[in-house]
Amino acid sequence: MTTPLPNPSLQVTADHSLKQVEAPVYAPGFGEVLLHVKATGVCGSDIHFWKTGRIGSLIVEGDCILGHEAAGVVLQCGEGVATLKPGDRIAVEPGVPCEQCWLCQEGRYNLCEDVQFAGVYPYHGTIQRYKVHPAKWCHKLPDNVTYSEGALLEPLSVVMHGIKSAGLSLGRGAVVCGAGPIGLIALAAARASGAHPIVITDLESRRLEFAKKFCPAVRTYQVDRNLDAEGNAKKIRKLYGDDEYVAPETVLECTGVESSVVTACFTCRRGGTVMVIGVGRSIMNNLPFMHLSLAEIDLKFINRYRDTWPAGLQCLGGGILDLKPLVTHTYPLEKALDALHTCSDLSNGSIKVQIIDEAENVL
């Protein structure tokens, strides 16, 4: 196999460094396809791996190509691939489960302990030009869905799994904590799901202004750094009026920050659900256990997603969700390092940063 172009990649190292290096190009094996990655979104987890070297028990122990929010085009198919052909435009579902354990057998493959997840050491990710991936975990893009939108399917899947698990109700109040990419997608999805009224919170006024433009029906609340969790929760609850029934039944916590999780617990109405979607610290010491217990508030969590890509494609292709405005910054693959620096600095005003490769291939 020959490749007409080099394969630049962005790799994180065990000593918390980033480097742009040429990566090898592999031929697709049985059931695999070789992709040209056209778009990859930068995720907060990429920044975590760079800055801290770990997320919980997931530790960077060597060089690893980052990236898992991706879409591209099929260049070659390995033996046994019947569902795809060269030229097909696809979105990458980055987790490849073992399909043998009891969790996989139950259909809960997102909980598989032996999952090979792109961009999590030692499994190389999508911030490279060429990547081999199992055809089973590649999903065809409708003609009216761009590569950029296809790369947004991964964070959309996170939100869809969270919303399904939380059980949002039509015409019931909801809160979204955090106006970053996941929070804004959660806002759009909650609105499309019929939740009302919806309040979105954040520390940054600029992000709340963006949220208001992105979803004009939303109410915004800027978190007061001088108030504790209960104080902020009371002010959020006031936005719903005095009727306890109208108070938020569901809180989608999209930051993972401990103080925000605690605020979410005090914001939720009695008998409601707090769904933690954000990635946080390994240990949180200040959760209001007895408040949750006495109010019978369900505190729930998700791990990535399962069975979301087909529905996500319908949302984007069918016009149910328009997530294109979330992409505020794009960089060519050769400047992927700049993309991560932009994403890691909130002063740049980025929402979703994507790495785009417009190079042509003739494999």
Rank of each mutant, 00 (worst) to 15 (best):
H16I: 00
I90L: 06
K352V: 01
G87Y: 10
R89G: 08
V176Q: 03
G272M: 01
T3N: 10
G318Y: 05
T308V: 09
P6F: 13
N226I: 03
I182A: 01
P86D: 12
R219Q: 15
D357H: 09
E79T: 09
H291T: 11
V218T: 11
V262H: 01
V362K: 12
P197V: 10
A39C: 15
T83D: 14
I356R: 08
N232M: 13
Y123Q: 09
N144P: 11
A118R: 12
V37N: 13
Y221M: 12
K19I: 05
S347G: 01
Y221A: 06
D338C: 02
K140D: 01
Q20Y: 05
K19M: 08
G162E: 07
A295K: 14
E204L: 14
L84W: 08
N232W: 13
Y221T: 11
H329R: 06
V176H: 02
P332K: 04
E93C: 05
S282A: 14
L152K: 11
T263V: 02
A359T: 14
A71V: 07
A14M: 04
A229T: 07
T201P: 03
S148M: 09
E32H: 12
F30I: 09
V279Q: 01
P122G: 07
L323G: 11
L18D: 01
G162F: 06
D242W: 15
M1Q: 10
A192H: 14
V25A: 13
Q76G: 06
V132S: 11
V74Q: 05
L10K: 05
P122R: 12
P197N: 12
C343Y: 14
E360N: 10
G107N: 06
L103Y: 12
L111G: 02
V115A: 09
E253T: 05
P4T: 13
V73N: 10
T273K: 08
V33I: 14
Q116R: 15
G72Q: 13
L316G: 04
Y221K: 07
V246M: 10
G53D: 00
G31Q: 09
D298N: 13
D88C: 09
N110F: 05
G78C: 08
A70E: 06
